[in-house]
Write a protein that binds this DNA or RNA. Structure first.
Length: 919
RNA sequence: GCAGGGGUAGCCAAGCCAGGUCAAAGGCGCAGGAUUGAGGGUCCUGUUCCGUAGGGAUUCGCGAGUUCAAAUCUCGUCCCCUGCACCA
């Protein structure tokens, strides 16, 4: 006799067995098709949160499913172990960052293991290992050699709170992506990766990716490709030329001024020591504070003029707080008539407005413009280009400029090169030394890794690396002279841009990845993670893959073929409508808001520490067990939708677990060996469920899959009570168990063992369905609607049935339906249909009835189901299925044919809809 | 402003790509019944309205259109979410 369901005992037992017997370790096997399933590796904070849980359960379920389908599945886990929290812990509590990190990894790994995740732990990596980050350095050197890494002085984003610079991607609404502190601008010499070289590839290859549309869209926007022209303006009274970028070269003749970004290096030169210097400084300060610019669009004439490249007219040079230094060369031509921003600028500063494009439909009056006309039209006031439509004008003017040597077609991107320097300790040292004699010298490959020193002080100000004299002071690898090490470390996004490659051969000593391993495993077939990395990690990784392909290191150029971004995890949280914000539970007393005294509402919002609405996965596991937590996370919503936490939800799943356990371990009270129609039905339900579940998991609709399984569980549960066929009951139980095993693996292993089925259910094959049985769907559907109909009649008439008679219609009805189906392909006209039908002798006899039926069918086309049975099949099937009805309703059921019935109701019989007569 | 994704019964949510088998799966909630000493749990039934025979009426944000037939296709419109946003 079986025991009670005891998750904690079961789960630990199987987790240990999996580990001991290395059940989930894999090696490349050429003859087997691989499947690489990967979740975004976590930053190792000490506790797992629900977002992680959801992420991993999705991946694990898929990995187990694919394994069962016979794929060789690579499913690894590792830790994004560098980064600020460790360093901050060092500053605050004096803990060594490495110790702190490794300790956290231990804790989080323990929690992951309690979830029963089927990782190949032998492949675990952590990016703070020397053996890992040496390859960051190797990549850096490779990039340097290929011109993909370079150093330059630039205006960069600086987060004062983190004490480091940030890449463009890491600035969100002028704030640091990590700590949300307002970002400042600084001019610094920093290291960059030339991701812009791959801008077009990164953009074009998006098309072939099986990624969520919004992620692709975000990357597209981020790359921000725009086609236009670069136009050179001569500066009056000097030999200098300035370049500007425009997408509207057709409006060139309308340019009445140039506007420069205050940061532009030329501007600084021009205004130094002039009366404009003060004003320039003010504007410069203004444009550093990005938020302010929204409100203030200030400009300043700086006493210089440029010469229009074609007309040679003089136009004034201004600086403007709104001009972005980072884009289009940091200068624009001002065309007030055709650009709204320029229009406002011109109005504000009394600059001339020159109309050069007229709309196609009507005519604008230059003197009376109230806003810019930004659409296409035809050119006016544009010399030889007059009367051309905008598009053509653009092309012709660009061509002319090219002939004059004053411009050319050009493409610009919003995407900036990736700034990778970070002024922090806990990261990969950039392998560079500064030699007094030789200058900037890369550390030779043979001297890698450059490891982090231990004798550093964490004071909370400045880069701790600078405090290690023994480390900073070194010798030049070229000349042997005195040299200083680069103290900046790399952005941790460098680590995560290739970690998925390292999993392919995690213990490889002499290279970053073994080429043949990478060839076998890459690309990642299914990548799963949060949406927050849509333009950071996911863009950088694509860039790395493309660069590494160009080095010949790997063959694929897109690392992740399929991407799933799981939705948020939400919880009901107190919300104060008066204050218009969510409240921490400590801010609520007696359902009132503690700051305004107003009544609070409960609203759903993403779980976060600051709102105190977090549910800790570990507590869930302790209370209900991992299997319940797993089932619940998958069942609460489909992966891409938001997930709503619910206490009553998880309770009901826990009860379901018990039910499943008992259903599959307690033998039915009575069984039989004979086979009856009810068995056919159950068998059909089984095959149908296998099909539905398999397809749902394939499409990652896990919630739907669970729904289907739930239905089968219910069917099997009822089946158990009615003296089931022993063999079939066993089969359904077994297949059900197999289908549940990716979701609740511990429970399934336990039942599997108790039933003596074999070693590990985790290594068993996924059940398959029989297409022939699925084809019977039409019949079973007919039976189901028959049952519904009978219930309906009983409900309406409130009868106590003694007997049910099913009457199969006359042959001509079948003929009529089948003819009609054919006819409807060619015509819809009732008259024509009627005429054609009446040509048939057999049908002619029933002309009157047919004409009535025809009306009915045209009115309700669903009567004429495309899934037809022949009269004989229908009769045979009903004859067989009547036992089911007898069981269902507890009364005798008979099937007769219309010919044999004298009942008026018999006339109602139609194909697929036998007449029902309840006595 | 630009772009992407949405709006389905009390709530959550599937269906839409490939129109008919859709009064529309499943879950939650609610109601009734069976079981139980009660509660809980479990099982069954119901859950737009009307109807003592499988029917009828009205429903898939709103409005139009295509079609014999629309939750599904087309157009318009309103609302919600998400991302980007002085990008020249």
């Amino acid at each position: 006799m079986s025991k009670q369901y005891d998750p904690s005992g079961i789960e630990e037992k199987w987790q240990n067995r999996w580990r001991k017997e290395k059940v989930f370790e894999v090696i490349p096997e050429k003859q087997k098709t691989k499947f690489y399933c990967l979740e975004m590796y976590p930053y190792p904070s000490a506790t797992l949160h629900m977002g992680h849980l959801r992420n991993y359960v999705l991946g694990d379920c898929l990995a187990r499913f694919k394994r069962a389908q016979g794929y060789n599945v690579l499913y690894p886990m590792g830790y994004d172990a560098f980064g600020l929290p460790a360093e901050n812990a060092a500053i605050k509590h004096g803990i060594n960052p490495k110790e702190w990190t490794l300790n956290n990894i231990k804790k989080i790994k323990r929690q992951q293991q309690r979830m029963g995740l089927s990782y190949d732990w032998s492949r675990q990596i952590q990016t703070c290992d020397e053996e890992y980050y040496r390859w960051n350095q190797w990549i850096f050197l490779k990039f340097l050699e290929k011109g993909l890494a370079y150093q330059k002085e630039a205006w960069v984003n600086w987060c004062p709170k983190c004490g480091t610079v940030l890449a463009n991607e890491q600035v969100v609404n002028d704030r640091c992506w990590r700590c949300s502190h307002r970002v400042e601008r600084k001019k610094l010499t920093q290291w960059f990766f030339r991701i812009r070289n791959y801008a077009d590839d990164l953009l074009n290859d998006l098309d072939e990716l099986n990624w969520p549309e919004r992620v692709k869209e975000m990357q597209k926007n981020w790359i921000g490709r725009s086609e236009g022209a670069e136009i050179k303006f001569k500066v009056k009274g000097s030999r200098e030329e300035v370049s500007i970028f425009t997408t509207r070269a057709d409006t060139l003749y309308g340019a009445t001024f140039l506007t420069f970004a205050p940061e532009h290096p030329l501007v600084e030169r021009w205004v130094k020591g002039t009366r404009f210097e003060e004003g320039w400084k003010e504007l410069l300060a203004l444009s550093q504070k990005k938020d302010m610019v929204e409100k203030e669009k200030k400009g300043l004439f700086i006493g210089k003029h440029a010469l229009h490249p074609i007309t040679m007219e003089e136009i004034p040079i201004w600086i403007g707080s709104f001009v972005l230094y980072e884009y289009g060369g940091g200068a624009v031509m001002g065309v007030p008539a055709h650009d709204q921003r320029d229009f406002e600028f011109a109005k504000q500063n009394d600059l001339p407005i020159k109309l050069v494009i007229q709309p196609f439909e009507h005519k604008l009056d230059e003197g009376r413009l109230t806003r810019a006309f930004t659409e296409e039209g035809y050119l006016v006031n544009s010399g030889e280009f007059n009367d051309l439509p905008s598009k053509e004008g653009t092309a012709k003017i660009t061509k002319k400029l090219e002939e004059l040597g004053k411009g050319k077609k050009a493409v610009d991107y919003k995407l900036k090169d990736w700034l990778i320097s970070r002024q922090r300790y806990w990261g990969t040292p950039i392998p560079i030394v500064y030699c007094e004699g030789c200058g900037v010298v890369p550390v030779p490959e043979k001297d890698l890794p450059v490891t982090l020193p231990k004798d550093v002080e964490f004071t909370g100000s400045g880069n701790p690396l600078e405090t290690s004299k023994s480390w900073v002071e070194t010798t030049c690898p070229k000349c042997g002279g005195k040299a200083r090490r680069e103290t900046d470390t790399m952005d941790t996004f460098v680590d995560s841009s290739w970690y998925f490659l390292r999993y392919c051969s995690p213990h490889q000593k002499n290279s970053l990845v073994d080429k043949s391993d990478a060839k076998y495993w890459m690309p990642v077939d299914q990548y799963i993670g949060g949406i927050e990395h849509a333009v950071m990690h996911l863009l950088y990784s694509r860039f790395f893959a493309k660069a590494m392909r160009d080095f010949g290191l790997i063959e694929v150029e897109e690392p992740f073929s399929k991407l799933l971004c799981q939705g948020m995890v939400k919880n009901l949280t107190p919300f104060c409508p008066q204050c218009n914000r969510f409240l921490h539970s400590s801010e609520v007393s007696n359902n009132l808001c503690s700051s305004c005294g107003g009544e609070i509402q409960m609203r759903s919002v993403a779980m976060s520490k600051s709102l105190g609405n977090i549910v800790e996965p570990e507590k869930l596991i302790t209370k209900y067990g991992a299997d319940t937590a797993r089932f619940f996370t998958l069942f609460a919503s489909n992966p891409e939708s938001d997930f709503e936490w619910s206490e009553s939800g998880i309770e009901s799943i826990f009860r379901l677990m018990k039910k499943i356990y008992e259903l599959l371990t307690f033998r039915p009270r009575e069984c039989r060996t004979s086979w009856d129609p009810y068995d056919d039905w159950l068998n059909f339900r089984l095959h149908q469920t296998i099909k539905q579940v398999t397809e749902s998991i394939d499409q990652l609709k896990l919630r739907d899959a669970l729904n289907y399984l739930n239905e089968l569980i219910n069917s099997l549960n009822s089946y158990r009570e009615v003296k089931p066929n022993k063999k079939l009951f066993g089969e359904i139980s077994k297949d059900l168990l197999l289908m549940l095993s990716p979701i609740v693996p511990h429970l399934c292993e336990e039942v599997w063992e108790q039933n003596g089925s074999g070693e590990f259910i985790s290594l068993e094959r996924w059940p398959t369905y029989d297409k022939k049985i699925i084809k019977e769907e039409t019949k079973w559907d007919m039976l189901e609607s028959l049952i519904e109909d009978i219930k309906e009649i009983l409900k309406i008439t409130k009868m106590r049935p003694k007997r049910i008679n099913l009457i199969v219609g006359l042959p001509w009805k079948y003929e009529f339906f089948s003819k009609l189906r054919e006819l409807l392909e060619t015509t819809k006209t009732q008259q024509v249909i009627m005429k054609t039908l009446m040509k048939e002798q057999e049908l002619r006899k029933h002309g009157k009835e047919i004409s009535g039926l025809l009306k009915k069918v045209i009115d309700k086309p669903s009567l004429l189901s495309s899934r037809a049975l022949s009269r004989e099949d229908e009769f045979d099937f009903l004859e067989k299925a009547k036992d089911i009805l007898t069981k269902q309703f507890g009364v005798q059921t008979e099937v007769i044919i219309e010919e044999e019935s004298t009942q008026a109701k018999a006339k109602q019989a139609l194909p697929r809809r036998p007449a029902i007569l309840i006595e």
